[in-house]
């Protein structure tokens, strides 16, 4: 998907790789599993430092849960990389998963087809965080603050690349950020 829009993408499996990227995508998966593996392989401090220094970050579904400030459940403990509180499995179990058309701020043209799988929603939003998409009944399902993006749904499951392009813009900004100390080659990572 990223390659389709001309991005150099790497799969991040080791913490050292975080220094080689301008943007990181934490995709869908199981949030409990992702947080456990991030902890076990000692990613968290380094990831926090890179995001604080301006690296672009995008969490989708489980990724949104992982980067939130607070969850309704006692675990997993999220990483607090964006000031939102999140309710997991808000719509129910797998049999309640669905697709919907979404209008997203900053995305021109037709609404996006969004795939929600055991999806979370954003309950509360902190200062400086903007809501960029809502469901018909008014639940926040996409938010942004600076170069950090979080979506409840899975743009990685459809062929629409418009949100990816938006994230690419954030990563390009990050590349020019002197705090990140990035060289000229451009990379986006996905864990």
């Amino acid at each position: 998907m990223l390659r389709k829009i001309g991005i150099e993408a790497i799969e991040v499996r080791k913490v050292q790789q975080l220094s080689k990227i301008d943007g990181l995508i934490i995709p869908g998966g199981e949030s409990t599993t992702i947080v456990k593996l991030l902890t076990r392989f000692e990613f968290i401090d380094h990831l926090r430092e890179r995001v604080t220094s301006g690296m672009a970050l995008w969490g989708t579904c489980a990724g949104m849960i992982v980067i939130a400030r607070e969850l309704a459940d006692p675990y997993p403990i999220p990483l607090n990389l964006i000031d939102i509180s999140v309710a997991r499995n808000y719509f129910g179990r797998q049999v309640d998963s669905f697709e919907a058309e979404l209008n997203i701020e900053g995305i021109n043209g037709d609404p996006m087809r969004a795939v929600f799988i055991r999806a979370p929603i954003v309950r509360t939003i902190g200062k400086g965080v903007t809501r960029i998409a809502s469901t018909d009944d008014g639940q926040a399902v996409a938010v942004k603050k600076g170069r950090v993006l979080a979506t409840s749904f899975h743009p990685e499951l459809t062929s629409d690349t418009r949100l990816h392009a938006l994230f690419l813009k954030l990563a390009k900004e990050a590349q020019k950020d002197p705090r990140l100390n990035r060289s000229s080659e451009r990379n986006i990572g996905s864990i």
Binding site: F98, E99, L157, T158
Partner: peptide, 15 residues
């Protein structure tokens, strides 16, 4: 859509 939602969960279990 139903199909994508069903297969999508399996995609999320990959790895």
């Amino acid at each position: 859509g139903d199909w994508r939602v069903k297969g999508g969960l399996a995609q999320m279990l990959k790895g």
